[in-house]
Lab assay of single mutants.
Amino acid sequence: MTFKLIINGKTLKGETTTEAVDAATAEKVLKQYANDNGIDGEWTYDDATKTFTVTE
């Protein structure tokens, strides 16, 4: 399955996707991606669209 991350950061905005077997696995990968890029904020997840959003 494809999961999307929408980034609403102070210095970085955009989106990325990852392939994962489930939402929990995708969340780990996407949170690591955000952490690697210095993004720390509030996370939400929409199961209907398989989209995570992080807002700083």
Rank of each mutant, 00 (worst) to 15 (best):
T16A: 11
A34D: 00
T2C: 11
V54S: 02
L30E: 00
E15M: 11
T53F: 07
E42K: 10
D36S: 11
T49P: 02
F52L: 02
L30Y: 04
F3I: 02
D47C: 06
D40W: 14
K13G: 06
K10C: 13
F3E: 00
Y33C: 04
Q32P: 02
K31Y: 06
L30V: 04
N35C: 12
D40C: 12
V21Q: 11
E56Q: 09
T44S: 12
D22A: 03
N37K: 13
D47K: 09
K28R: 13
T16F: 15
T49C: 04
F52M: 01
K50Y: 09
I6L: 07
A26Q: 00
T16Y: 15
A26C: 02
T25P: 02
K50R: 15
G41N: 01
A24L: 11
M1N: 11
Y33V: 05
N8V: 14
E19T: 14
D46Q: 05
E19G: 06
L30G: 01
I6Q: 05
L30A: 02
G14H: 14
E27H: 10
A48K: 12
N37S: 08
L5S: 01
A23D: 04
A26I: 02
T55D: 06
E27G: 06
D47Q: 10
Y45T: 01
K50F: 11
I7C: 05
L12W: 15
Y33I: 06
G38S: 07
N8F: 13
D40I: 14
D40Q: 15
N35M: 15
E42V: 15
E27C: 13
T51Y: 03
D36V: 09
T55I: 08
T25D: 08
N35I: 15
A26F: 01
L12Y: 14
E15N: 06
Q32F: 05
Y45E: 00
A23E: 07
L12N: 09
D36Q: 12
N8T: 08
F3H: 03
K4F: 13
K13F: 10
D22R: 03
K28Q: 13
L12V: 12
G41M: 02
K31T: 05
K28W: 10
T53K: 05
K31C: 05
F3M: 01
E27P: 00
D22C: 05
T18D: 02
D46P: 00
T2E: 09
E42I: 15
D22L: 04
G9H: 09
G14L: 15
T51R: 03
K50E: 03
K10Y: 11
A20Q: 10
T49Q: 07
T16Q: 08
L30M: 05
E27V: 07
D47F: 09
V21N: 12
A20K: 03
I6M: 07
K10A: 12
D40N: 14
T51L: 04
E15L: 08
A34W: 03
E42G: 05
E19P: 05
G41S: 02
V29N: 10
E15T: 13
K4A: 05
A26K: 00
I39S: 02
N35T: 14
A23H: 09
T51P: 00
T53A: 05
E42D: 10
A20R: 03
F3V: 02
F3R: 01
M1P: 09
Y33T: 03
K13A: 08
Y33S: 02
E27N: 05
N8S: 07
W43A: 00
Y45L: 02
N8W: 12
E56V: 14
N37M: 15
Y33N: 02
T2F: 11
F3W: 09
K28C: 07
T53S: 06
A20H: 04
T49I: 07
K28D: 06
A24M: 10
D22S: 07
D36C: 07
A26L: 02
L5M: 05
D46R: 03
K31Q: 07
A24I: 12
D22K: 03
A24Y: 11
I39K: 02
G9T: 15
D40E: 13
T18N: 03
T44H: 12
G9A: 09
E19K: 13
E56P: 09
D22N: 09
N37C: 11
E42F: 12
F52H: 01
T44K: 10
N37W: 14
K50W: 07
A34S: 05
A34E: 00
F3T: 01
T16C: 12
I39V: 11
E27T: 04
G14I: 15
K10E: 08
T55A: 05
Y45D: 01
V29S: 08
E42W: 13
K13P: 06
T53Y: 10
K4D: 02
G41V: 02
E27A: 11
T53L: 05
N8A: 09
I7F: 14
A26W: 02
N37L: 15
D47V: 11
A26R: 00
V54I: 09
T44Q: 10
I39T: 03
L12H: 13
D22Q: 03
G14N: 08
G38Q: 07
V21M: 14
K31H: 08
D40T: 14
F52V: 00
W43K: 00
K13V: 10
T17H: 09
G38K: 07
T55S: 08
V54R: 00
N8C: 12
L5D: 01
E42P: 05
K10R: 14
T53D: 02
D22P: 01
Q32I: 09
A48D: 12
E42Y: 12
W43S: 00
K28A: 12
A24W: 13
N37H: 15
G14C: 14
A20T: 05
K10T: 12
D47W: 09
D36I: 08
A20V: 04
G41R: 01
A48R: 11
A48P: 07
G41H: 01
A24F: 12
V54N: 01
F3C: 01
E27M: 14
D22E: 04
G9N: 06
I7N: 02
N37P: 01
D46G: 02
Y45I: 01
A24Q: 11
A26E: 00
W43F: 05
Q32Y: 05
G38F: 07
T18E: 04
V29M: 12
A26P: 00
Q32T: 08
A34H: 01
V29I: 15
T25G: 07
K50D: 03
F3K: 01
L30T: 01
I39L: 06
G9M: 15
I6T: 05
D40Y: 15
A34Y: 02
T17F: 14
I39C: 04
A23L: 09
T44E: 09
V29W: 12
V21C: 11
T25V: 09
E15I: 14
L5N: 01
Q32V: 07
N8M: 14
I6R: 06
K10I: 15
E27W: 15
W43Q: 00
A23T: 08
T16K: 13
L5R: 00
D46A: 04
I7D: 01
A20F: 04
T55E: 06
M1C: 10
D47P: 13
A34L: 06
T49H: 06
G9E: 03
T44W: 08
K31F: 06
F3Q: 00
G41A: 02
V29R: 11
T25L: 09
E19N: 13
L12P: 05
I6C: 06
L30W: 04
G9C: 11
A20G: 04
A23F: 14
K50T: 04
Y33P: 00
Q32L: 09
D36N: 10
L5V: 04
I6H: 05
V21E: 11
T17E: 10
T2R: 13
T11P: 04
T49Y: 05
E19Q: 14
I6N: 04
T55G: 04
N8Q: 10
M1A: 11
A20E: 05
F3N: 00
T17V: 09
V54K: 01
K50N: 08
G41K: 01
G41E: 01
E56R: 05
N8G: 05
T17R: 09
I7A: 03
L12F: 15
N35G: 09
I6D: 02
Q32W: 06
E42L: 14
T2M: 13
